[in-house]
Design a protein around this nucleic acid. Structure first.
Length: 607
RNA sequence: GGGGCCGUAGCUCAAUUGGUUAGAGCAUCGGACUGUCGAUCCGAAGGUUGAGGGUUCGAUCCCCUUCGGCCUCGCCA
């Protein structure tokens, strides 16, 4: 006994010209209906697409009457004969537009409340409303397609790793909190009163231990959790393609994974990615692009002009250089026509000052007044001798009509402002194409960087990253200049994956901990299990992790991570559909030996 | 924790410098209609202008507080 009579024989979207003359049964959601009093048309939607149902009172008066009652988003099943639409009645807008189903059977499986927004127009609807009614939002083909792409990426990746001899192994979700890195999500333990699990920020130590255990090649498509503020491309709960391999060097890991990426791009977009992908050192990336994830779809490299600036009479420049800063800038091709003086001094300057820059110096490249070639024009041009102006033009190989923009600051501060400025200009000057994919491996990262506030070194990647062997001797003398065997894969300015060769000798690991100001005792408390594992015969090993969410974003051309996650959270980490997080019963708290507490000093209410 | 944008009918938006009864399209409901496909035509209903307070003769508009969404800095080994 079924609770419906008509059983589907084919998906709506799959009914085609080959089915003409066949009896079929379709089921799905009423996308739209057109009632002519006589004929009734229903566009029926399922996962695979739309198909037009026709109800003719001459054919079957009873179901025609029934069909007149349906409304959008009702769930129905219909059976009938597939037939060609006669000439002039075809609808080229939908793939099934050449055929229709002349219905002889019809069943209303469910009615539906009027939806809070029209499925067809949901792309224009406030995201808040879409998230609260995700079951409706996900009925949209665009959303279903993104989830489908995500699924297919996972499938390609699984198949790829299966063929390469990798084993998918699950690691715990309830783990131990490690104070480094991002903030942990904590889960109170009922059985161990007063203790907490942490949700994994990544399976880092587990996958390394799997290498110690001899699994040799591990991968996992795994949820990770970092309790930090979300962004457009970042959720607290996200998915990694996590990989680890034994007896490998940097080249091995890169080789395996660029092939994986190429297979994904081929499988999803049909695009042949040229292998091997190019590589760039961290130092070069920072010098030319001001950032460790350069967008190589366009050139517009940053140039340091500190040597020229030191000789000018512009005090902002000279004093910056004198105080150990740099003057760095870029040349926007055609920028002096695209940006008015007001654009530069208001919009662009505001843009960089939001990023911490103190100002933005500019020159327009124009025909020289004396008719001899080109020259720089600016309110500050007078502080530069003709020779210096010429030197600047040459540094950028600037052309008439270009716009030169400079930030004078400490090196890191200048890069921090210029790198996003470069991206903004590249976009606005239409130097980037959406169909262009420029991959690059960034390598030779510094192992550590000095943390001025804490007076210690911090890992750039994480504390298990192996140094470059030739730099090992600097461990005691010059730790800030040790390069690491870390690598990031960057696509169009997005980091899509990153990893490293790991330290496999306990002595080196302990040395690194001490440089990071982690005492023997602390290391023992936090990573004791791991250090112990390293002492029992750890093979050389390394790995990588890709962000599945971000990969899917790039493959589907969205800049909103929530579009590639079925049930995402808002910027405050809430699910607007389920209203998580929520309060819990007192009884649950008691079982966990937890008590919630209001601020002891509540802000005073104004009278 | 900081900065910015936004919130008007179910949805998307409008509303002159602060001024009369807050409008339109779509959706909804009722009716008409023989091939539509954004159907069409006729009609109806639909509002705590996110919430609270203030200024004012008068507030969607100005000010304060607050809630929510988005973007962003910090944060994200």
């Amino acid at each position: 006994m079924k609770d419906f009579m008509l059983k589907r024989t084919i998906y709506c979207g799959k009914v085609g010209i080959d089915d003409v003359g066949k009896e079929v049964i379709v089921s799905g959601w009423v996308h739209s209906y057109r009632d002519h009093g006589n004929l009734v048309f229903i566009d029926l939607r399922d996962r695979e697409g739309l198909v037009q149902l026709v109800f003719d009172p001459e054919i079957n008066g009873e179901i025609h009457k029934l069909a007149r009652q349906v409304r959008c988003e009702w769930v129905v099943a219909a059976g009938g004969l597939v037939r060609n639409r006669s000439e002039g009645m075809e609808n080229p807008k939908i793939p099934t537009g050449r055929i229709e189903i002349a219905c002889t059977a019809f069943e209303i499986l469910n009615t539906a409340d009027t939806p809070p927004f029209e499925i067809d127009n949901a792309d224009k609807v406030a995201e808040e409303l879409r998230l609260a009614n995700r079951f409706l939002d996900l009925r949209r083909p665009a959303m279903q397609n993104r989830l489908m792409v995500r699924h297919r990426v996972a499938k390609i990746v699984r198949d790829y790793f299966y063929n390469e001899g990798f084993i998918e192994i699950e690691t715990p979700m309830l783990g131990k909190s490690t104070p480094e890195g991002a903030r942990d999500f904590l889960v109170p333990s009922r059985l161990c009163e007063g203790s907490f699990y942490a949700l994994p920020q990544s399976p880092q130590l587990f996958k390394q231990i799997l290498m110690v255990a001899g699994m040799d090649r591990y991968f996992q498509i795994v949820r990770c959790f970092r309790d930090e503020d979300p962004r457009a491309d970042r959720q607290a709960e996200f998915t990694q393609i996590d990989v680890e391999m034994s007896f490998v060097d940097v080249g091995d890991v890169i080789g395996i994974h660029e092939k994986m990426v190429a297979e994904v791009w081929k499988g999803i977009l049909g695009i042949d990615v040229k292998l091997p992908m190019r590589r760039m050192t961290y130092a070069d990336a920072m010098r030319d692009y001001g950032i460790d994830r350069p967008d190589l779809r366009f050139d517009m490299k940053l140039r340091d002009i500190s040597d020229i600036a030191a000789k000018c009479d512009f005090k902002v420049f000279t004093s910056t250089v004198k105080n150990g800063g740099i003057v760095k800038g870029l040349c926007a091709p055609g920028g002096s026509n695209a940006y008015s003086r007001n654009d530069i001094e208001k919009t662009l300057t505001a843009f960089v000052s939001d990023l911490g820059a103190k100002g933005l110096a500019w020159f327009k490249v124009a025909a020289a007044e004396d008719g001899s070639g080109i020259d720089l024009q600016s309110s500050i041009a007078k502080f530069f001798s003709p020779a210096l102006r010429k030197a600047i033009i040459e540094r950028f190989n600037a052309q008439n009509g270009d716009l030169l923009l400079f930030v004078a600051d400490k090196q890191a501060a200048a890069n921090k402002a210029l790198a996003p400025l470069r991206i903004k200009l590249g976009r606005e000057l239409k130097l980037v194409s959406d169909s262009q994919y420029e991959f690059v491996w960034v390598v030779d990262f510094p192992l550590m960087e000095w943390n001025e506030n804490e007076k210690r070194f911090d890992s750039l990647h994480h504390p298990f990253t192996a140094p470059v062997p030739e730099d090992l001797h600097k461990l005691d003398t010059d730790p800030g200049n040790i390069r690491s065997q870390a690598y990031d894969i960057v696509l169009n300015g997005n980091e899509i994956g990153g990893g490293s060769i790991r330290i496999h000798q306990p002595a080196v690991q302990e040395k690194i901990f001490s440089l990071l100001n982690i005492s023997k005792q602390q290391a023992e408390d936090r990573f004791g299990f791991f250090l112990r594992a390293l002492r029992y015969g750890a093979p050389p090993h390394g790995g990588i992790a890709f962000g599945l969410d971000r990969l899917t974003m790039l493959l589907t051309g969205t800049d909103n991570i929530r579009d590639v996650i079925a049930f995402p959270k808002t910027q405050r980490g809430q699910c607007l559909m389920t209203e998580a997080p929520g309060s819990v019963d007192q009884k649950q708290l008691e079982e966990l030996n937890l008590r919630t507490q209001k601020h002891s000093h509540e802000p005073e209410k104004k009278e």
